[in-house]
């Protein structure tokens, strides 16, 4: 275990237009509610950071997150990372001005890796997160994709991760598209390979369905942080206190059923995750009182 480094639990909020959404393999997005309501609850419950991703920004060349970020930043005082559709240094500037602390780049970095160095020089390494969307190939290699796993790039993930570090990025957000939204657990092999190859923090993303999955990716794969969506969102929906409001864009059928559960995913909350990790000797921001 890495001594003294507290593992971070980061709720991931996928945004489409005005709504919080969730899909499987980043596809088939269903509307879950208003992102501000979820963000506020996670903040109050002890989230260590928040991650916002505009999941359709690349498709439509739009970034609708600014308003959501600037509203959230006025009442939420933990670090916020924003990704999706950020292409240029000016885009980064405007997201930071809206109140974000870090940006996550994927497509822009793959197309032009030098933007990593440029952004790190201007805004500081700790501001620059590079998102990798990985898909396992039949031969066991992992390749990086863009646009929610739709666009093939041919970039090999391990080499890419090392390059990201050498160009001065502060952190890697590593999403397994294969596992994303499934509840089958993180891709431990993928996370282990990347975390062992770089010395910057690696945020594991995609796949957790129960508390053991979170423990394993930290303990066995050496993830420095975990980004979690479904387990947390479905829990809040189940309580019915965060999802009452949403705007009529996208697929709202799931919400109308009000079941609050989904497939292999066991609902949980941030305090329960922290308590579980603390009891399993994983250092995290948790006070045992």
């Amino acid at each position: 275990m890495k001594k003294g480094v507290n593992i971070r639990i980061i709720p991931r909020l996928d945004i489409k237009g005005p709504n919080l959404v969730k899909g499987i393999h980043l596809e088939g997005l269903r509307v879950l509610g208003k992102p501000e309501d979820f963000a506020k609850r996670y903040y109050e419950m002890g989230a260590d950071e928040l991650l916002y991703v505009d999941v359709v920004a690349s498709l439509y060349n739009r970034n609708s997150l600014h308003d959501i970020i600037s509203r959230t930043a006025k009442e939420i005082f933990i670090p916020m990372t924003v990704g999706g559709g950020i292409r240029t240094i000016d885009d980064i500037k405007s997201v930071l001005r809206a109140g974000a602390d870090k940006v996550a780049l994927n497509t822009a970095a793959i197309k032009n890796p030098e933007i990593i160095r440029e952004a790190a020089t201007i805004f500081g390494s700790s501001t620059v997160t590079i998102a990798i969307e990985a898909i396992k190939q039949p031969n066991g290699d992992y390749l990086a994709y863009t646009d929610n796993g739709r666009e093939f790039t041919g970039v090999e993930v391990l080499d890419w991760a090392k390059k990201i570090e050498s160009l001065g990025a502060g952190e890697i957000l590593l999403t397994s598209i294969d596992r994303e939204g499934t509840g089958l657990g993180f891709d431990k092999e993928l996370t282990k390979r990347i975390a062992a190859a770089v010395s910057i923090p690696v945020v594991a993303c995609g796949g957790p369905g129960k508390l053991e999955h979170i423990y394993e990716v930290i303990h066995e794969s050496q993830a420095d942080a975990v980004a979690i969506a479904s387990m947390l969102h479905y829990d809040l929906i189940g309580q019915g206190n965060a999802s009452a409001k949403y705007e009529g864009e996208g697929n709202t059928e799931f919400l109308k059923k009000k079941t609050g559960t989904f497939g292999k995913i066991t609902n949980t909350n941030i305090s329960a995750i922290k308590k579980y990790l603390f009891e399993h000797d994983i250092p995290c921001r948790y006070r045992n009182e």
Partner: peptide, 9 residues
């Protein structure tokens, strides 16, 4: 630096 969070607080 990014001073907005200080202002918001």
């Amino acid at each position: 630096s990014n001073l907005f969070s200080v202002k918001h607080a």
